[in-house]
Write a protein that binds this DNA or RNA. Structure first.
Lengths: 199, 199
DNA sequence: ACCCTAGCAATACGTTCGTATCGAATCGAT
DNA sequence: ATCGATTCGATACGAACGTATTGCTAGGGT
């Protein structure tokens, strides 16, 4: 994972990249500023990542891996995992806001960078599938959410979470409001009886 | 509104800004490149906007105003307006993808720029209120959506639209899939009985 | 003892950047 | 006809940029 001395150095640098992105977008990321933020020399940054683009891309990959690792470290209870996977992107702490800012910076870049778009797409799809799985496992109504329905429900819930995250990021919704609405929607999806889409 | 010769020049320049942003993010926006894209001199760009930040901000304001104008020009039928306001952000044509890219570029910048965040927040809130109004006006079920409920429903629908737009932008959902799901959710919210999508 | 390589730090180079400035048109009001 | 303001085009300047290059050092295999 992240064990060799070299990897530790890379990690320090990548953290500095995140700080810069959260503070002012990807355009803030330059070798000199990253080195400054990390408290290392420009040469070190350049040695480990070669080009600016490679640095930005590596920081994106690491962000996704880290989110994945954090999710894996959660308790196994589907109930709890479901809450986490849906709510974790909605900023209500500085830490969460930080993550959401960085994520959206990459999201914006993905419009012009296919490689980053691919990374984000893979991550999103994985999240969606995991939500669907959790909905089935933790199903409040075992009979309600079958294969097809659970994927649709997962897609809807994830979209709501992403959409609300945007609202919180630009500051016209509080984190608490967004979480409240999202949890209500989760309850609706898992308990209501409509949704009948199989003959 | 946009009639004086000077305004026309400004508009040409702003269009060039949009093209650059859609093609590679806000970091692509420089006086020289904008001038090049618009086919005018650097001096002209500088004269009309002064600084780079002012140029970027003006292009943001104009984007929001344009979207608003386009909405106002729609037929008055609430049914149609509702569909447009929810679907227009989901890219399924090159034109729509263009708009979504630019919007998300500004969204990303808003994490670090309060002025832009304010503009986007105001626009989003206005959209939400308009959706709530349309839900009441066009209500398939008059009894279902009252004041409180319609705002909640509007917030949810708008979040779904925004979340799905993200998925389409990064390329792991097609515009058609996203539109299909969103329309299904709209149907559910408005009446939940007619749902008729089982083959 | 030898050398090879990874891991830097320092610096240099050419480019591009934002912006200031300068001068020439053009134009509207007088 | 005159004159101040607007609207530029052209150019210049210092800062910051990405990256190539150079040289040093510490360790590991032989």
């Amino acid at each position: 994972m992240v064990s060799s001395p070299s990897d530790a150095r890379r990690q320090e640098i990548i953290q500095a990249v995140w700080v810069l992105i959260a503070g002012g977008g990807i355009e803030r990321v330059t070798f000199r500023r990253v080195a400054d933020q990390a408290g290392v020399s420009v040469g070190r940054v350049q040695h480990h990542f070669g080009t600016r683009d490679a640095l930005v891309l590596a920081a994106c990959e690491t962000m996704i891996d880290l989110a994945h690792d954090r999710y894996q470290d959660l308790p196994e209870a589907p109930e709890e995992r479901l809450r986490h996977i849906l709510l974790h992107a909605i900023p209500d702490s500085d830490r969460a806001r930080f993550g959401a800012s960085v994520w959206h910076a990459y999201l914006s870049k993905s419009a012009a960078d296919e490689e980053i778009a691919g990374l984000l797409a893979e991550a999103k799809r994985g999240t969606e599938e995991e939500i669907a799985r959790l909905l089935e496992d933790a199903g409040g109504r075992g009979d309600k959410l079958l294969a097809d329905g659970s994927l649709r429900a997962a897609r809807t819930l994830l979209a709501i979470a992403d959409g609300l995250t945007v609202r919180v990021l630009i500051g016209d919704l509080s984190g608490a409001e967004a979480r409240g609405l999202l949890l209500a929607e989760l309850r609706r999806v898992r308990g209501s009886t409509d949704q009948g889409n199989s003959p």
